[in-house]
Computed example of a mutant assay.
Amino acid sequence: MKTILVLGGTGKTGSRVARRLKAAGLPVRTASRAGGDLHLDLDDPTGWTPAFDGVTAAYLVEPSLSASTDHPSRIPRLVTEAVAAGVRRLVLLSAPRAGEDGHPLHAAEQAVRGSGADWTVLRPQWFAQNFSEGPWRPGILAGTLALPTGDGRTPFVDAEDIAAVAVAALTEDGHSGRVYDLTGPRAVSFGEAAGLIARATGRTIRHIDVGPEAFVERQVAAGASPDVARLLTELLVAVGNGEGATLGDGVEQALGRPPRTFETFVSETAAAGSWS
């Protein structure tokens, strides 16, 4: 097999995909705006050609929520460049409901599906690692996770499962033309999640519900654009409204095993000292 390109190779899923590929002894090239084997800026197509030299399979991810809303053509342009360069297998990290018109990643999905290459689309629910490596970690460390989710529940998916499915799709036959809905094995409320992390770490952690407008204002004050802040808030409010609690069977379909539990994620993350 020739080289596999991992876009976002220093991110939550890309780093795990690259690590698994390297452990299997496969040739891997990571690309990102910062770090990785080479610099790749989705806003600068002049630097894309070297990324695809000798590449036959690629893991694609839109790393920026704001870019996915403001510049939805970035991934479609990249897909065109990749196929022209000889890439024959594409695995796209997408999101729930991205098949619907108007979704920020709809154009990316359509581009991959119509590329002429073998393609697989991954639609994961909220990452469990958002509590340990992402936007909710500061709240966990501060002891108060303030989100507009109420008592809504969602089946957080472990990024390790996402990476395992991505590697299978990149390296094995039988995944072409598949859309995998990736979730954990059960839906968990943010309050329960905070409680599980609290017990595993010995910390006092609580989840409090905040109003949507207050949450938007907080995100804008932290540097998010108003459009991105509203989009993020809408997604979290949807959880509170009971949306996004449906379990997907993508992990089992792709890997032949159940997904990792949120409890396993918490115990392993706490043992690693990630919340210390």
Rank of each mutant, 00 (worst) to 15 (best):
S68W: 07
L65I: 13
V266Q: 00
R260Y: 10
G114S: 13
A193W: 10
T204V: 14
R16E: 09
L92V: 07
P212I: 06
A142F: 07
T269C: 06
V61G: 01
H39C: 11
T120G: 05
A142E: 14
A31F: 11
A238N: 07
G211T: 12
L247S: 04
P104N: 05
I162W: 03
R178I: 09
L65W: 13
D118C: 08
A84P: 01
D151L: 15
A224R: 15
S73A: 15
L147K: 10
L26E: 04
T261L: 04
G244D: 11
P76S: 12
A51H: 03
W126P: 01
T30I: 05
T144Q: 13
L255M: 11
A168G: 05
E263M: 11
K22R: 15
L147P: 00
A84L: 11
G35C: 02
S189V: 12
H207T: 10
A200P: 10
R153L: 08
A111C: 05
P124T: 14
F262T: 01
V239M: 09
R257W: 06
A146G: 12
G139W: 10
G273I: 03
L141W: 11
T69M: 15
A214T: 15
V87T: 12
L40I: 14
G248M: 02
M1Y: 10
T69D: 00
R230W: 00
G116D: 05
F127T: 01
P96E: 03
H175C: 04
R203S: 06
T49S: 13
V251F: 14
D181I: 12
L235K: 12
S64C: 04
V112D: 02
V216P: 00
S132W: 01
A271F: 00
G8Y: 12
D101S: 07
G8S: 10
A200S: 13
I140F: 07
F131H: 14
T13C: 15
P27N: 11
A98E: 12
L5S: 02
G248D: 03
K12W: 00
A84F: 07
D158V: 08
A193F: 01
R88E: 14
L231A: 13
A214V: 15
F131N: 04
T56E: 14
G256A: 13
T201Y: 12
